[in-house]
């Protein structure tokens, strides 16, 4: 049981906790000893993130070795020998015929794949987060952060409607438009409908129903096949709908906002960079000192896992604002310089 607390707490800290495990952890944490243990693990985990081996990496020697390598004379090329013309004409012809078949077959396969793709998806824009979280800014200025493995397909973008399909998990910041509701097809005839709000959505393709956690505004989660089988969720609430198992749940959600220890997501919405560094400092236990010439009046938008390291957070800032730089003046103080010129 002791080991289970360690694993569940670690999964929570790294955003890998399933909803079942979340309940299990909540149940185990009712015992005061377990709760204390879990808090201690979280504390140590957060502090351990600052670990950065400070060694003498002998940069100058590495630099010298580098220059030695790039200036080394190139090896004398081995003289090429003209091949003896022993290949017969018949062999050459056979080879040529094979190539025709291969090219023809490949072209046919390509066309078939294209036709199938067109049949299934038409020309609908699609984005998939293959290896990392992907950000998409849709035509109506809705912002979407797709979790790793998630796919978003824009089904309709018209004067009267906005409709997308989601497979996997994503955080949405939907631009407000009372004339055009934003509808997300979560699979298995479950839909989420909003006018303008931010929330996290999970599709129901894995068989556990569509799930929504709302940060602000409200979201209606409903089944297109069962009238009246719906729930409306408001800020701070999360809910799930599973018509197959006749389950509709609604509860308070604690994981949709902000940069807090142990939360499964980190969401920044138009966060001024200056404030961002304050929050990162508090969260990661370091002090950010802003250079007096730094110009940091710019917004930062990002959705990341709760287990994100400080390096990754800083990398995310650098990816948007490459002119912002930072240097460690000592292990716990980081000086920030530069300005907010965005990457083009």
């Amino acid at each position: 049981m002791d080991s289970r607390i360690y694993i569940l707490t670690h999964k929570r800290l790294t955003g890998q906790l399933s909803s079942i495990e979340n309940s299990e952890l909540a149940r185990l944490s009712l015992i005061p000893e377990n709760k204390t243990l879990s808090e201690e693990i979280a504390y140590l985990w957060n502090i351990s993130n600052n670990y950065f081996p400070t060694k003498d990496w002998n940069k100058d020697a590495a630099k010298d070795a580098f220059y030695e390598k790039i200036r080394a004379p190139k090896a004398t090329p081995i003289p090429t020998v003209e091949p003896t013309p022993v290949v017969t004409q018949a062999v050459t012809q056979t080879s040529s015929i094979n190539w025709k078949y291969i090219v023809g077959a490949a072209a046919g396969l390509l066309f078939l794949s294209w036709a199938i793709y067109q049949f299934v998806f038409g020309n609908k824009p699609q984005i998939t987060a293959k290896e990392k979280i992907e950000y998409a800014n849709l035509a109506d200025d809705t912002k979407v952060w797709l979790d790793q493995g998630a796919t978003l397909t824009v089904i309709e973008e018209s004067k009267s409607s906005r409709k997308v399909a989601l497979e996997g998990e994503a955080f949405f910041d939907v631009s407000h438009d009372p004339e055009r509701p934003f509808i997300i097809d979560l699979g298995n005839d479950i839909y989420a409908r909003v006018l303008g709000t931010s929330f996290k959505a999970k599709s129901s393709h894995e068989g556990d129903g569509g799930k929504i956690s709302v940060r602000d505004g409200s979201v209606r989660l409903y089944s297109s096949k069962r009238e009246g089988f719906d729930i409306t969720l408001r800020a701070g609430e999360e809910g799930a709908l599973n018509p197959q198992e006749d389950i509709a749940t609604k509860s308070y959600s604690s994981n949709v906002n902000g940069l807090m220890s142990g939360k499964q997501e980190i969401v920044f919405k138009d966060e001024p960079i200056e404030d961002l560094f304050d929050k990162l400092g508090l969260h990661y236990g370091v002090q950010f000192v802003l250079d007096e010439d730094a110009q940091l009046e710019c917004p930062f938008n990002r959705y990341m896992h709760g287990g994100t390291s400080l390096d990754e957070m800083l990398d995310a800032v650098a990816a948007v604002y490459p002119n912002i730089t930072w240097t460690n003046s000592d292990r716990s103080t980081i000086v920030v310089e530069g300005n907010c010129k965005e990457v083009e």
Partner: peptide
């Protein structure tokens, strides 16, 4: 690049492979 990133990158790699020479 060496001046700006060499030490940082060595430390990043070392945290994964825990081998000083290999990281360099």
């Amino acid at each position: 690049l060496f001046d700006r990133f060499f030490d940082y990158l060595c430390a990043v790699v070392y945290r994964v492979i825990h081998d000083y020479e290999a990281a360099r």
